[in-house]
C-alpha cells in the first residue's frame, strides 16, 4: 500500500488515487508525420527505475498532480504540480 502526499489533502492511502500514466508528454504540431503522431499516442518510456507520472486524488479533492516514483521499489521520490518542472530527485534505490 502506497501512502501518497496529495499536495492539497496531505497523506492518504493509494486506493483514493488513480494513476494517469506518463507525465510531460507534449503533443506534436498538426504537421507532424504519422510516426511522430503514433509515438505521441502510444510510445511510452516505461522506465525500470524513476517514473514521472500523473496522478489524481479521485476520491478526495479530485485534483491532478505529478509524482516521481521508482517502479521497482515503489518509493515515492517527489510530489510536484502539474505545470511544475521536474524537481531534483534523490538517487533511486532500484
Amino acid at each position: 500500500m502506497l501512502q501518497i502526499d496529495c499536495p492539497w489533502c496531505g497523506r492518504r492511502d493509494e486506493d483514493e488515487f488513480n494513476c494517469g500514466g506518463q507525465s510531460h508528454i507534449q503533443r506534436p504540431g498538426l504537421d507532424c508525420s504519422d510516426a511522430e503522431w503514433g509515438d505521441y499516442l502510444f510510445a511510452r518510456i516505461n522506465p525500470k527505475g524513476v517514473s514521472l507520472e500523473r496522478w489524481r486524488h479521485t476520491h478526495g479533492c479530485r485534483q491532478w498532480f505529478n509524482l516521481a516514483r521508482d517502479t521497482v521499489s515503489h518509493r515515492i521520490l517527489a510530489v510536484y504540480g502539474m505545470t511544475d518542472p521536474v524537481p531534483a530527485l534523490p538517487e533511486a534505490r532500484s
Binding site: 500500500m1 502506497l2 492511502d13 493509494e14 486506493d15 488513480n18 494513476c19 516505461n46 525500470k48 517514473s51 507520472e53 516514483r69 517502479t71 521497482v72 521499489s73 515503489h74 532500484s94
Partner: peptide, 13 residues
C-alpha cells in the same frame, strides 16, 4: 495493479 511496476510483487488493495 493500478500503476507501473517492475517489482514482481502485488499490492494489498
Amino acid at each position: 495493479d493500478a500503476y507501473y511496476s517492475y517489482g514482481q510483487r502485488g499490492n494489498l488493495p
